[in-house]
Design a binder for these strands. Structure first.
Lengths: 217, 217
DNA sequence: CAGTTTATTGACCCATCGGTCAACGGTCGG
DNA sequence: CCGACCGTTGACCGATGGGTCAATAAACTG
């Protein structure tokens, strides 16, 4: 019983290490040897838990995405006002703990492999669909029509992708605040200024900050 | 004299082949062997023209970017009305010959390597700066203020990046027409509807189509 | 035609990759 | 105390990577 638990914990450790290595060194340089070194064990030990390198990296990516999803979910539960869910998604997508050049690079590395790797393809599709669906339903909450929600979700997710890419490439010293501002600017142009929206944004900004601060303890 | 020319032509051939291989198979699978096969020669022959693999790929990327720039330049020369240059840039960035999933993937592959490769870093920076500067000056032509031009250029280039990424990942069967529409929608929101703008867009769309059609002959 | 340069190649080198395997050592139930 | 089990490891394997090199063939030069 505790045996299996230990094994699972170990797998998680390796998965975390693998994503770190991927983020730091890129896909080509993410070798079993390096992941092993990064955890302080031997290469063979890594392969004892993951039958194959592909398996390891896929688990790593799924795990990394999972934590991001959990953060989004937690934030979304913390509000019920019309724009709350929308800004919860935005906030989660630019969390201080994940919106970092290295992390962004891990995801870009995955994107580059998507066309040559069905597993990554699936994962990527799932991530996109989830974001799109979340954005649409969040925008529907604000009273937008289905078409309006669809179009806006499209543009917002497009901007999110672009901002993450830019974060990874480290263009213009992009900050998470800057990123959220850019999205907010486009949304404001689309829906006009509204105190409700501003309140939701500020609320989620605070909650997001509190959440990530509480994590370091 | 004709010697050097032949050598240069050969180099170009290899560079083109290298970019094709990169687009088709990704960075990891872009091996000297494969590039050689793709051109019907031996691996050693490729290395005769390019001292190193890094050298080859860098040349390939620079060349691919160069053709895109030339297309943009040619289009930009074809108009003098306020919005002409802006839509020339847009049109060139979504040219039917380059805005394709495989080509997009070549660039994504480069992006993934940027943090671990100073040469790619430089190239990427140059590409970004050029686009940004072109967009800004094109927008200044339309009578926008410097700040307005800066902000708009920022968002437009962000959208371009996102659209290329999405093209590479083949999300939602993205078409070049769709891509231009998305950008146009945001620009319209920002500057309102204007017959001048619409005229410029239609003009460049036609010119772009004529250009790429004329190429197949 | 002779000599020199240039293009192309196969054979080869070394490093490293992902992955296998048998052996070792600790831990737990009996 | 003992056998079964589990985690860990070093040694090893075949494949493949980038890159070198000497030999050969072809093309230009005088």
């Amino acid at each position: 019983m505790s045996r299996r638990k230990i094994a699972d914990i170990r797998k998680q450790e390796f998965a975390v290490a693998a994503f770190e290595v991927l983020s730091l060194y890129g896909m080509q340089a993410t070798t079993l040897q390096r992941v092993a070194e990064h955890t302080g064990v031997s290469k063979a030990s890594v392969l004892h838990y993951f039958s194959t390198k592909q398996n390891l990296i896929e688990t790593a990516l799924r795990r990394a995405n999972g934590t991001l999803q959990q953060e989004a979910l937690a934030l979304m539960k913390m509000g019920s006002a019309p724009w709350d869910r929308f800004y919860a998604i935005i906030e989660a997508n630019f969390s201080p703990t994940t919106f970092l050049p290295q992390v962004a690079n891990g995801w870009i590395s995955m994107c580059a492999e998507v066309p040559h790797n069905p597993q990554f393809q699936r994962l990527q599709t799932a991530i996109f669909r989830r974001l799109d669906s979340n954005l649409r339903s969040a925008l529907a909450d604000t009273g937008a029509s289905a078409d309006e929600a669809k179009d806006t979700a499209n543009i917002v997710s497009l901007l999110i992708d672009g901002l993450w890419l830019r974060c990874g490439l480290q263009i213009g010293g992009l900050d998470r605040e800057d990123a959220i501002d850019q999205i907010d600017a486009v949304v404001t142009e689309r829906f006009g200024t509204s105190s409700d929206r501003k309140a939701a944004r500020d609320k989620m900004r605070m909650l997001g900050a509190a959440m990530t601060k509480g994590r370091t303890g």
